[in-house]
C-alpha cells in the first residue's frame, strides 16, 4: 500500500473509532445516578471532540483548525468548573 493512502485510511479509521466511542459517555450522561457523574461524562465527550478535530486536521491538511482545538480544550476545563460551582451554590441555598 502506498504511504499517503495509508495515512488517509488511518485518519478515516481514527475518525470512525472516535465517533463510535462518543456513544459511551452519552449513555453515562443519560443513566448517571447523580449530578457529578453527568459532569464527568460531559468532560469525557469534550475530550473526544478535541480528538475528532485533530484527526480532521491530519485528514484535510488544514492547519488553521488548531485554533479551534485551543478554544475547545480551554472551554472543557472552564465549563466543568463552572457547572460544579453552580451545583455547590444551588445546594448551599437549601
Amino acid at each position: 500500500m502506498d504511504s499517503s493512502t495509508f495515512l488517509e485510511y488511518a485518519a478515516v479509521a481514527g475518525l470512525w473509532i472516535m465517533t463510535i466511542s462518543l456513544v459511551f459517555p452519552l449513555w453515562r450522561l443519560f443513566k448517571g445516578p447523580s449530578l457529578p457523574d453527568r459532569v464527568v461524562a460531559l468532560d469525557q465527550s469534550a475530550v473526544i471532540i478535541v480528538g475528532i478535530i485533530i484527526c480532521d486536521i491530519i485528514y484535510s491538511k488544514n492547519e488553521m483548525e488548531l485554533d479551534v482545538v485551543l478554544v475547545v480544550s480551554f472551554l472543557l476545563a472552564m465549563g466543568s468548573m463552572i457547572i460544579a460551582r453552580f451545583l455547590y451554590k444551588q445546594n448551599a441555598e437549601k
Binding site: A11, G14, I17, M18, S21, L22, F24, Q44, V47, G51
Partner: peptide
C-alpha cells in the same frame, strides 16, 4: 493515529 484512537475508545469504555 490508530493507537491513540484505540486508547480514547478504551477510556470511554472505562467510563
Amino acid at each position: 493515529i490508530i493507537i491513540s484512537a484505540l486508547v480514547v475508545l478504551i477510556a470511554s469504555v472505562g467510563i
